[in-house]
Design a protein around this nucleic acid. Sequence first.
DNA 1: CGCGCGTCGTTAAACGCTTAACTATCAGGA
DNA 2: TCCTGATAGTTAAGCGTTTAACGACGCGCG
Lengths: 338, 338
Amino acid sequence: MPTLNEVAQKAGVSTATVSKVLSNTPYFSEATRQKVMQAVEELGYRPNLAARALSKGKTHVIGVVFPYIYDRVFTDPLVQRILEGVEGECSQRGYNLLLSTPQLAAQGPDENYLRLLHSGYVDGLVALDNVPVASVLEPARARNVPAVAIGYQPHAYYVHSDDHQGGQGLMEYILGLGHRHIGVITVRDGLNYSIRQRIAGLQTAAEAAGLNFAELPQIEGRFSLASGAECARTLLEQHPQITALACMNDRMALGALHYAREAGIAVPAALSVVGYDDISSAQHAVPPLTTINQQALQLGRMATRMLFELLDQTEPASVVLPTELIIRASAAPPVVQK
Amino acid sequence: MPTLNEVAQKAGVSTATVSKVLSNTPYFSEATRQKVMQAVEELGYRPNLAARALSKGKTHVIGVVFPYIYDRVFTDPLVQRILEGVEGECSQRGYNLLLSTPQLAAQGPDENYLRLLHSGYVDGLVALDNVPVASVLEPARARNVPAVAIGYQPHAYYVHSDDHQGGQGLMEYILGLGHRHIGVITVRDGLNYSIRQRIAGLQTAAEAAGLNFAELPQIEGRFSLASGAECARTLLEQHPQITALACMNDRMALGALHYAREAGIAVPAALSVVGYDDISSAQHAVPPLTTINQQALQLGRMATRMLFELLDQTEPASVVLPTELIIRASAAPPVVQK
DNA sequence: CGCGCGTCGTTAAACGCTTAACTATCAGGA
DNA sequence: TCCTGATAGTTAAGCGTTTAACGACGCGCG
């Protein structure tokens, strides 16, 4: 591959001049500009980014970090959506995207990730950082690598969705339909800050309606559709009086729907099911799933914009995105019984 | 961030020695090893990858290229799955993943991508390269950047799934059920080699059964679920005698299912629908979708392994992966009528 | 006429690492 | 004793950029 030097030779000038022309740094004549451009053209020269990175200390690469915790990273439709947002912002600005999926153990992220972080290979980081066990951004902060968290990280720049509001809205909706026997399908507490907030939101709404939230039947799934189906079965077998199921993500809600169909339980006539996330398949489920849209795309976009502000030396403000209740057809008033 | 030099100073040796110790190049004593390691430890030293890249000409980064054609890149569940495969192989070997989503115009990929390609920033490329308009790997070949295509690129190292076999299997299955009035939902020809092959497969099977394939009603969708629904409507309104719909991807098949449900057409009793891809939501559709599994995960894995072989200077063999017919519940024999 | 300044271009150092070439030391064999 | 060769470590060049520092030139102005 041709180098700056070869271009310089060909154009009959020094490398410094070529560099100036290419970076549009003042003080070169139109004539030399022409010569240089011509040489660049003929050789098909393109700068070596590694060299540039070394010299400038900037790589134009930002790292996207999806730690590998409860789930294979890319099975979560939200991740995909976030990535889409990040990607859009980056490519708009001519930045490249380095994907990192560190293992996250209690003592911190894995060595591979740390090497990347300290390598000078990325100008900044956008990280899904939302679990209590350990923060992937902690080491970044220690090394002064600009970073934005998607999640609940009060000590960092962050963006997250208003999960409390979302949870509350969801519960208010169910209560408003008239349900009182409500089962909750959640995940193990302490796995994820967002879900903890959603639960808190449910609780707020429940207690505002005079229900004792702690007495509502709850069960812990593992995020997946299959686990949702299983949880629905267990919950309904143990508490046949349940008329509504609030699931803390859409995949588990879809699982619940799946179970209901197999068990011959009509949704929403005999059982209401609501989810959380508004993943794309929620819309086409049978029946279409009532859920909370948490704007994953926007999450990715915002985080990336904030990172760019950081890179531009301006202090970004952390953001909390509002959620929206998406009413479809999987929930209805309970049939009056007994 | 600490540099090699600082480590060397602290350990009281030369940078060359430190470098040797760290890369385990022969000829240093246990004593110096200890000193060096201690210094590394205390300073928290980690190599600057840009410098290393410049010096060695290797970055340990491979580029994953998903050109941006008919669709926003990450909306296709297959892309996600392929990415998962690539990611797994890479992180196993300590490689990092750079994501590139070039715009693909007739005259070739965009400048941003070319810059990346020529930058020396990636050691190799795995590319979804499967469209007739232009190849993203063409410029890679021109620059001698090792690359593997996922798709039909006979001039390159490639891996693709046996779409002809898949299409044929799908059609044989439908014919075997007894259908003769079969509608085909495809995409604009020339958009995608794989789909062209699938169609060829359908045709092979149809003609083996004595059907004139060209006379079967066909319509072109745009990959998406919504377009599938629309196509199903059009096709069925124009050709009410159709008893089965063969869709060239699952999303359009899901759309067809969606339309059928709305229109009150019972699947599979009154209409059989089959898809292609076996995306995860196919399994949970109502009714569960009969489709062809094309092993997207494996596609990503294989391509990456081939790339690593290439990087190891060994000539990889291109691969064609077999497909598998996944029989679920969206297709059944036609009701004998008239 | 001479000085200063704006313009255009060059030289060379620096970024942090790898590695070929080199020096020094020491043990063992002839 | 001397030579050889293995071992241990150093020096310095090189990877391809950027950029600070510097020189040369010409022009306008006092």
